[in-house]
Design a protein around this nucleic acid. Structure first.
Lengths: 189, 189
DNA sequence: GATATAACCAAGCAAGCGCTAGTGTGAATA
DNA sequence: TATTCACACTAGCGCTTGCTTGGTTATATC
């Protein structure tokens, strides 16, 4: 529809509600109240309720890609540093944009076909970053196993962090990233 | 409410619908039609819609615990065999009871407080099996890393398999289990 | 053959749903 | 000054929701 700052803020607030209540249980009246407007006014900013969901997921995925991209550009070239940078970046998006990621994981199926196809491309672009870095680590002998399986395994472990990782807890994203990839690597020395 | 065979069968069918449509989008009329009865009759078997969800998740978790228990009792005593047995058992419940597990993962938040507390105990019992086996493997030096993190990492990777693992595909649960734990272990030889 | 019980049905209520139509308003643009 | 535009409002339509009610039927038990 458009890209106004107002819409961005509304999207952020919608994400919070979608996490708290789930997409289907979140009514347009609840969304409107959270946003401080009446339910009818919502449809000035979004075509329908589905479009709000798509906007939430799109914002989250773009954020993840941007952070991962930055991390890869500023880190060392060796495979371990690149793995570490990707893992840390992933945990950092959970910190800065947790709601959107939870929504993406749990409410993906509620997207209509068109939005799903569009967003699948974005998500694939993010996973491609991971797969490239995993390929390098495999080639360097840093980790071992089947390419496809390592990638699923790592994505699973990382996505699962939304269930238990507390950014305010004992471990920083940087520390946690180190421990996670250390687990996969052959013992040093 | 009760434990009749009829109710068990209805629970199984409800699980399929919950996976296909999601809990909130599945209406009592859809459930009834799938079961070959009228919507009013549903409430003879279940107090309300929430209770159907709880029944689905409870059945799935009990199945997972039973299979894991059997696997541990019939396998060798060494830590690698026990890790392998647990991973294979997990993938086998995905094969025999996939719908219930998908529902447990995606619709957990839709449970009311009472059911959630009850089922959390069951789920903890399952995870405790895993944690014991992981502890043994750590103590034996088979894998390395922080106890808490290894356990979350492994649970994440395994639960994520519902998104991509195709039991009819190229890899049997046994093979896949081997590859997954091989990834975590220090290279042999 | 009377009684109990589990399983089902038809009909519908009260509440809530996504969304639309039509209108008002203050600020920017011509 | 006249027009446009973004943004918000009120009111409510048409439909679906989970669940209840009051009653019927098949099967088993005494």
């Amino acid at each position: 529809m458009n890209d106004s700052p107002r819409r961005k803020e509304l999207t952020r607030q919608a994400a919070r509600l979608f996490v708290r209540e789930g997409f289907d249980r979140t009514t347009v009246r609840m969304l409107a109240e959270e946003m401080g407007i009446k339910s009818g006014s919502l449809f000035h900013h979004f075509r329908d309720k589905q479009e709000i969901l798509a906007a939430v997921i799109e914002a989250g995925t773009r954020n993840a890609i941007a952070i991962a991209h930055d991390a890869l550009e500023t880190c060392d070239r060796d495979p371990e540093a690149r793995l570490h940078a990707m893992a840390r970046a992933h945990l950092e998006t959970l910190l800065t944009d947790r709601n959107a990621h939870v929504v993406a994981l749990y409410e993906w199926r509620r997207l209509d076909d068109e939005a799903r196809a569009h967003l699948a491309h974005l998500r694939d672009a993010y996973e491609a970053l991971w797969e490239a870095v995993i390929d390098e680590a495999l080639a360097a002998g840093l980790i071992h196993g089947d390419r496809f399986l390592v990638s699923r395994f790592v994505m699973g472990a990382l996505n699962w962090t939304v269930r238990w990782y507390d950014p305010a807890g004992a471990r920083s994203p940087d520390e946690l990233a180190g421990e996670l990839i250390g687990m996969l690597m052959a013992p040093r020395g």
